[in-house]
């Protein structure tokens, strides 16, 4: 408990937020780096995973591919992948760019499976009759996707984005192993200096950031909750969405 209090004290010490402090400070610089790596990787991952997931969910083509491929991608250890990519890109790219490229690719690969699964499973979950009726009413395939499938799949799509975001926020911590910044830098310095305030403070910052972003997602999910899908009780809707990504305990157990 003392350790945590001391780490919290370290976080809230204004001196550690002063610009121009000695590396790995100030905290806000590392925080911004952390967010930048996270956002960059997520945007790239989304640009790949969402269209692919929509395509597969809409056409039903390549389902087997997604299932086996995302499974394999999930099994990849990100840290191992990062070292491997650093080695590969170390030959090709300059000393400056290799780490950021290698790290970004690692995080993109980490984020893709959840996003892809969310997009694909979301579209898959839409009632076939509804889609059939939309088509029979004269919607084009694009209109079916944009006006029927995506709105109805939104909870699952957002669930996938949310899971991917949390994974990436937590994992961007290892960017410091590639010599990059981010909150991981604080932890690594702490390990080097054997300074528990830094180690624990960094870890708490990562946790706090993850919780904060998760709360933003929860809010976004409530605000975009598809009307008409539940009985119009916001509370009930929130409950189902929050719980659905996790395995549920068997009922009547």
């Amino acid at each position: 408990m003392d350790l945590i209090l001391s780490a919290l004290g370290w976080i809230f010490d204004p001196a550690h937020w002063e610009s121009g402090s000695r590396s790995p400070l100030p905290i806000q610089d590392r925080l911004l780096e952390h967010l930048r790596y996270t956002a960059g990787s997520l945007v790239i991952a989304a640009a790949i995973a969402l269209p692919l997931g929509f395509y597969i969910g809409h056409t039903g083509r390549g389902r087997q591919f997604v299932i086996s491929f995302t499974g394999a991608m999930r099994a990849l250890p990100t840290l191992g992948l990062l070292y491997f990519l650093l080695m590969v890109f170390g030959y090709w790219l300059s000393f400056d760019t290799a780490p950021i490229v290698g790290a970004t690719i690692s995080f993109v690969i980490l984020a893709i499976p959840s996003m892809l699964a969310g997009a694909y499973a979301g579209l898959e979950s839409v009632d076939r009759q509804t889609i059939d009726a939309a088509r029979a009413n004269g919607m084009t395939e694009w209109q079916i996707l944009s006006r029927v499938e995506i709105p109805l799949a939104l909870p699952l799509i957002l669930g996938g984005l949310r899971a991917a975001t949390l994974q990436v926020i937590a994992t961007v911590t290892i960017a410091s192993y590639a010599g990059l910044g981010g909150l991981g830098r604080i932890i690594t310095s702490g390990i080097g200096l054997n300074d528990y305030d830094l180690i624990l403070g960094g870890a708490l910052l990562v946790t706090g950031l993850a919780l904060f972003v998760d709360a933003l997602f929860a809010l976004a999910q409530r605000l975009t909750a598809t009307p008409g899908l539940t009985e119009n009780h916001p509370a009930a809707r929130r409950r189902t969405i929050k719980r659905s990504p996790r395995p549920r305990a068997p009922e009547n157990a």
């Binding site: 009413n137 004269g138 084009t140 029927v148 109805l152 598809t226 008409g228």
Partner: peptide, 22 residues
């Protein structure tokens, strides 16, 4: 196809209404 379908009314057994629209 799309034009043709828009010019023909179609009623299905399960109504097939869009659940997210009023």
């Amino acid at each position: 196809k799309v034009e043709l379908r828009r010019s023909i009314g179609y009623v299905l057994q399960a109504a097939g209404l869009l659940p997210h629209r009023k």
